[in-house]
Amino acid sequence: MLKIENLHVKLEEEDKQILKGVNLEVGPGQVHAIMGPNGSGKSTLSYVLSGRDGYEVTEGAAHLDDLDLLGLEPEERAAAGLFLAFQYPVEIPGVSNMIFLRTAVNAQRKARGEAELSAAEFLKEVRTRAKTLNIDAEMLKRPVNVGFSGGEKKRNEILQMAMLEPRMCILDETDSGLDVDAMKLVADGVNALRSEGRSFLVITHYQRLLDHIRPDVVHIMADGRIIKTGGPELALEVENNGYADILAEVA
């Protein structure tokens, strides 16, 4: 599904290397988790995969199946089925959540040659999905993320993901800032979307989310590289001992 090879990335504006050769392969239907100390490059990886400006790929490649991701515009990557749930969802005053989401859903459908959803079809769909995520439908009329609490923003990301039905979902610390119940809701939302044709890359600092979303593989990222890969037990080790042992091991 997603294949990242020897990815090197620096900042466009300054001479600062952030990713220093990332290798990672997520198979169809798999859930991979990435953990790692603050500033190790996890969000940078997710931004580069989804096409944010400001980064320069100096070496390496990233493919979504046969598709060379790095040559595409963000909207093309989205239409191809890539989705990023932002660590910090963006507030956009003046743009209604509902209109934004409908435009996005229909733009993707159009790009894939599918029929667009009518206003009524869309509304029905979004109401149902919002309900399962315990999102107040009134909230969706408000501008994108404006005045949303931290947890509401994260749930809104998952709602967007559910509506867009991507095949490769990257979740960047979607669990941060969620209360216990909201974390359960988000995890249920993710689990409901799990299927053979859909894969997840879950960036997190905490074992708790991984209790709900059982990952197939756990990676540890440090200083712009994946330094260790293992099973779910690796997340437990981090939870109990922190990163010191693992960092010492590879040093």
């Binding site: 515009e73 963000p74 909207e75 733009a107 790009a111």
Partner: peptide, 12 residues
């Protein structure tokens, strides 16, 4: 904001 919108598939 532009990146957020386009990352959801809205053309630039």
């Amino acid at each position: 904001a532009l990146f957020y919108l386009t990352s959801r598939g809205v053309p630039k």
